[in-house]
Amino acid sequence: MRTELVSEPGDPARPNEDFASVGLPASGQGGVLVVLDGVTPPRGETGCLHSVPWFTARLGGALTELTVSLPDVPLADALGLAITRTADAHAQTCDLSHPRTPQATAVLARWSPRTVEYLILSDSALLLESPDGTVTPRLDDRLARLPRASLATDALIDTHIRNKEGGFFTAAADPSVATRAVTGALPREEVRALAALTDGATRWVEKFREGDWADCFRFLRKEGARELVGRVRALERADAEERTYLGRSKTHDDATVVYVEW
Rank of each mutant, 00 (worst) to 15 (best):
G10L: 13
P12H: 05
R14H: 01
A20Q: 05
S21A: 14
L24M: 12
S27V: 12
L33I: 13
L36I: 12
D37W: 02
T40E: 03
R43Q: 09
G44Q: 10
C48N: 00
S51G: 09
P53F: 04
P53Y: 04
R58S: 00
L63N: 05
D72L: 15
V73D: 03
D77G: 14
A78H: 04
I83C: 14
T86K: 07
D88Y: 03
A89T: 15
H90P: 08
H98E: 11
Q103M: 07
A104T: 03
T105G: 00
A106Q: 00
R110Q: 00
R114G: 07
T115G: 03
V116L: 09
I120E: 00
S124W: 08
S130W: 03
S130M: 04
P131I: 14
P131E: 07
D141R: 13
A144M: 14
L146N: 02
P147C: 10
D154F: 07
D154S: 11
E165N: 06
G166P: 06
P175W: 15
S176E: 05
A181F: 02
E189Q: 12
G200I: 01
T202H: 05
K207A: 11
E210D: 07
A214T: 15
R221P: 06
G224Y: 05
G230D: 00
R231L: 11
A238C: 13
D239G: 09
E242R: 10
E242C: 09
E242T: 08
R243T: 04
L246C: 03
R248D: 06
D254M: 04
V258A: 04
E261T: 08
W262K: 11
